[in-house]
């Protein structure tokens, strides 16, 4: 059976500074993994390699049997339509308003889209996150916390099969963290796969089927969380538990 996501001996970085070394793992459809490790372990770079931003120097990334960096523009477009990326900071195009920012991937992937349908979805998420009427503003005019939540909305409205999230709780207050985790869990229950780069114990509890532990650009070990549970610590890593997912959500 073809794996949903598969990496084969992926290497990335310069000769002097290898960031990723011989990364190989696979993820089945509907399952989610949390990538953890120290800040310089390469977990964010790994997400960017899978997310189409950093082509590997050697090795391959496959999504549903298709190599993500190979093929023509249309092939790449088909893959990207099904994978969404949430950055650790609220990244938006600075010179267009937030509504255009949210609709950018929609317009690109579905040129004949019905704006009413997407606008309804956007309104739903704006209400859910209590963001108010901010869509006519440019990104620089709204606080970072809101920009970050809008990143999640841009991913959600595309209804992707795989969502890559770099530090999902970074820059969010406690209330927003809870709302984000609740929504991520909902998507997961509906069958969406996730790869999340974080050391947050809350996110691990809520989302992880597997824990991919990285160190110095290599995968140190892969832990099947459903079988062995989430460890309290691995080496120098201590998994924080701020939100209290199990108790409150």
């Amino acid at each position: 059976m073809t794996d949903f996501l598969e990496l084969r001996e992926v290497n990335w970085g310069t000769v002097e500074d290898k960031v990723l070394m011989d990364i190989s793992f696979s993820l089945s459809e509907g399952r989610s993994a949390v990538i953890c490790g120290s800040p310089d372990s390469g977990k964010s770079v790994l997400l960017k390699v899978i997310g189409g931003m950093l082509p590997p120097d050697t090795g391959q990334v496959f999504y549903r049997g298709r190599e993500v960096y190979a093929g023509n523009e249309e092939d790449i477009k088909k893959v990207r339509r099904e994978i969404a990326f949430v950055f650790h900071q609220g990244v938006h195009l600075a010179n267009i308003i937030l509504r255009e920012n949210l609709l950018l991937p929609v317009k690109y992937h579905y040129p004949d889209y019905k704006s009413r349908q997407f606008n309804q979805e956007i309104s739903y998420y704006l209400d859910y996150f209590n963001l108010g009427n901010i869509l006519e503003h440019r990104p620089a005019e709204v606080p970072e916390i809101r920009r970050k939540l809008l990143n999640f909305i841009r991913a959600f409205i595309m209804k992707p099969r795989l969502i890559l999230v770099d530090e999902p709780l970074f820059n969010l207050d406690l209330r927003s963290q809870k709302m984000v985790i609740t929504k991520l869990k909902e998507f997961r229950q509906q069958g969406t796969s996730f790869l999340l780069a974080t050391n947050s114990g809350d996110v691990m509890k809520a989302m992880a089927d597997e824990l991919i532990v990285m160190s110095d650009g290599r995968i140190e070990k892969i832990i099947n969380v459903r079988e062995s549970g989430i460890p309290v610590r691995i080496g120098d890593l201590e998994f924080s538990d701020l939100v209290g997912v199990e108790d409150e959500i």
Partner: peptide
């Protein structure tokens, strides 16, 4: 200047992540 700032602000990465060249 604009494109250079877009690189440093991750905006180019945002386009790539959406599949937009």
């Amino acid at each position: 200047t604009e494109l250079g700032n877009m690189v440093t602000n991750n905006e180019i990465n945002l386009l790539l992540s959406c599949g937009i060249s």
